Amino acid sequence: MSASKEGGSKLVIVAALAANLGIAIAKFIAAGISGSSSMLTEGFHSVVDSLNQVLLLYGQHRGKKAPDEAHPFGYGRELYFWSFVVAILIFAVGAGVSIYEGYTHFIEPEPLQSPTINYVVLGIAFLMEGASWTIAMREFAAVKGDAGWWSAVHRSKDPAGFIILFEDSAALAGLAIAAVGVWASHYFADPRLDGIASIAIGSVLALVAVLLAREAKGLLIGEGADPAIVAKVRAIVDGNPAITSVAHVRTIHTAPDSIFVAISADFKDSVTMGEAESLIEGIEDQLRAAVPMLSSIYIRPEKRENAAVFQPAGTISTTSSSDSKRG
């Protein structure tokens, strides 16, 4: 991740945190005055979101820790761990409390109070959440380029940006549902409708949590680099005249801005061990210059036929077009 992208990601988190802290206080005050279940649910929603943003900031901070003997590839994947924790919190606390509060309010509805304070708080919250959502949308749009939105989320290696975008989108949806719940409960003189709105908000949060957990899990387990990066690496190695073929290029993100790459390449038989060492150093310099995110590079001289034998199950053996250079 470049310095500008990292700064943008942090800006998105801080903006969301500031908005949610202020909104949570206002929502709890409104819920205490009006007795609205959906407003109370929205208050818990904002508290959970605030905690999530603190965890993401902590993950970013921990991820910058330098490599050491215990973690030779650094601590970058801590951000992926805390992102997964955030998804669990949204599901267990955000969605769980919302659905439970809605159910209890439906079973034991409270007397209706004036909805005016609820509408005022919801309006203010919508403006603040909308501002946070706009920042998150703008930053993510700048990063995703020409890719589709869902494709960009799936391919992103920096979970902070899309988690905040999902959270803010869920928050805006929750505010709209809460407003409908408050209005319907007063219009139809049935406070149980407010409880139903709370359950609906919890359902939205549960759906968002499942989607985020799925993406965070993939990053935590380990995802390869973008196919364009892999293709660039292969082209650089394959373009060296001393290389007859590239058996495989395997990558894994050790952080949003850090990639480990392992390359199996077949050198010409005439290349001596000493010459191979110099060639590998030169290729590594080329790769780092072309792809700065390559933090660790491992190039293994290996005969093409031997590399094919040890191809891991489930992968496709790829033979380079440079086979024509053989001989």
Rank of each mutant, 00 (worst) to 15 (best):
S2P: 00
A3S: 11
S4W: 06
L11Y: 04
V12S: 02
V14N: 11
A18G: 09
L21A: 10
K27F: 07
F28S: 02
G32N: 14
S34H: 07
S37N: 05
M39D: 05
E42K: 03
H45N: 15
V54R: 13
L56I: 03
K64Q: 14
D68V: 07
A70P: 04
P72Y: 01
L79M: 06
F81W: 05
W82S: 02
S83W: 02
F84H: 00
V93M: 12
Y100A: 13
Y103G: 00
P109R: 12
P109W: 10
E110H: 11
Q113R: 14
N118V: 01
V121P: 03
G123R: 12
I124A: 13
F126G: 13
G130H: 06
A131R: 02
A136C: 08
M137T: 13
M137Q: 11
E139L: 04
A142R: 13
A142M: 14
G148F: 00
W150D: 04
R155H: 14
K157G: 01
A160Y: 00
F166I: 13
S169W: 14
A176F: 15
V180A: 15
H186L: 08
A189M: 09
D190W: 04
G195T: 03
L205K: 10
E215D: 09
G224R: 09
A225W: 00
D226M: 01
A228L: 09
V233S: 01
R234G: 02
V237D: 00
A242M: 07
I243Y: 00
S245G: 11
T251M: 05
D257S: 08
D257H: 13
F260P: 02
A262K: 02
K268T: 08
A290Q: 08
S295V: 08
A313D: 12
G314A: 01
